[in-house]
Amino acid sequence: MTWCSSVQAVPVPLNPETVRDAPKVLLHDHLDGGLRPATVVELADAVGYGPLPTTDVAALGRWFLDAAHSGSLVRYLETFGHTVGVMQTADALVRVAAECAEDLADDGVVYAEVRFAPELHVEEGLELAAVVEAVLEGFRVGTARAAERGRRIRVGCLLTAMRHAARSREIAELAIHYRDTGVVGFDIAGAEAGFPPTRHLDAFEYVRQQNGHFTIHAGEAFGLPSIWEALQWCGADRLGHGVRIVDDITVDEHGDATLGRLAAYVRDKRIPLEMCPTSNLHTGAAKSLAEHPIGLLARLRFRVTVNTDNRLMSDISMSREMAGLADTFGYGWADLQWFTVNAMKSAFIGFDERLALIDDVIKPGYAALRA
């Protein structure tokens, strides 16, 4: 007689610890927002930077989180003054980038696009090209170290221009120059109000003419006009944050949604939204995770991706970000896979590379967790 087992495989429970084993993709992460507190202390001592709020590593980590969550933009921006302040030498940039790659790999991230603004790291005399080369070297070092521990990650970087400054064309040219050695795209960041993306049209036009890719911080602190300009004037491939697209969506008492023309355009064109839930809570773009627009936008099947933004300031990781969403909105492994595939489809690397990661890494990784 042949006995057939009636026991069915039980999915792995979903929690912050098990989510670390899920392959994740990160598209919106700032290098100067992800330092280890201990590294800030050690680099400050090495380069003579100071004073820091404290040199106690644990207390400094808490200070960064408290400042980011204080509701004060002045205090929030002060945090970046300290991280950027210790990232003014080639050795410091190599170290920070290497640790970034290692930390992300240890958190189960298999592909990441990490952004930084070269123009913020020239106070001690580094040239822009030297800044880029140091960060790229750091990513190579960190990727290799992670691989030695059995953690494989690919890191591409985005070169960011500050929207209140006037070096965007220069940064765009750097992004194209280094695109075969690790730079995958271009970005602009900084205060949205008063500094529309159209101030940098020549940079965007240059990247497009060179068949490059770019994303624009839009729709976080400013509303629909910021998103509209980023898309219809500048031609952005992706939107950094984009949370305010919900201002163009009306939900009635039955939960049925009506999309305005801009929201419909964003969804129909499958324009990726680089959403950073925890960071948005800290900057006031959302009041609570339960009220964050990501829930509605995911339900309406926008091209939503999940990101960390500033891991140090928000004391967050991709695993905790995704586990928090699962706990808040009742998501399961299939939902987390959907977010991850969305991000991989939206990455600024070649189609074959994206497909290989989806088919060979992401789908098998989530299948093992659901089995």
Rank of each mutant, 00 (worst) to 15 (best):
G182K: 07
S6A: 15
G125I: 02
A286E: 04
A92F: 06
K269E: 15
Q337L: 14
H28G: 10
R261G: 01
L35Y: 03
S317N: 04
L128H: 13
T54K: 05
F116Q: 06
G182P: 09
I245D: 05
C4W: 05
I245N: 04
G61R: 14
D237S: 05
V19F: 11
P364V: 14
A101T: 06
D268T: 10
E220W: 13
I216S: 01
A101E: 03
F329K: 07
E113Q: 15
A134H: 08
S346Y: 09
T215Q: 05
V304I: 14
H121E: 06
R95N: 00
I249S: 02
V251K: 02
L120H: 11
F204R: 05
T215D: 08
F351E: 13
L174Q: 13
A236Y: 10
P277Y: 10
L52W: 06
A59N: 07
V361K: 09
L43W: 04
A68D: 03
A130N: 03
E353P: 04
E42N: 15
R152F: 12
A191W: 07
N211V: 06
D103K: 07
N280M: 10
K345S: 01
M275H: 13
F186W: 02
E133F: 02
R179I: 05
D91M: 04
Y206W: 07
T340W: 15
G330C: 11
F222Q: 13
H82V: 09
L126W: 01
V74K: 10
H164V: 11
L336G: 11
P51N: 05
A129W: 00
T181S: 15
A326S: 05
R62A: 15
G33R: 02
D315I: 10
T308R: 01
M313R: 05
V94T: 12
L31I: 10
N15Q: 02
I271N: 01
G365C: 13
R95Y: 00
S226Y: 11
E99V: 12
L201F: 04
L312D: 06
M275G: 08
A134R: 09
V304C: 15
T258M: 02
L273E: 15
R145C: 12
R95T: 11
E119K: 07
Q232P: 00
L158A: 09
F351C: 03
G185I: 08
L281Y: 09
D21P: 01
G81F: 03
R238H: 11
D360Q: 15
D180R: 14
A367S: 12
P16F: 14
S319V: 04
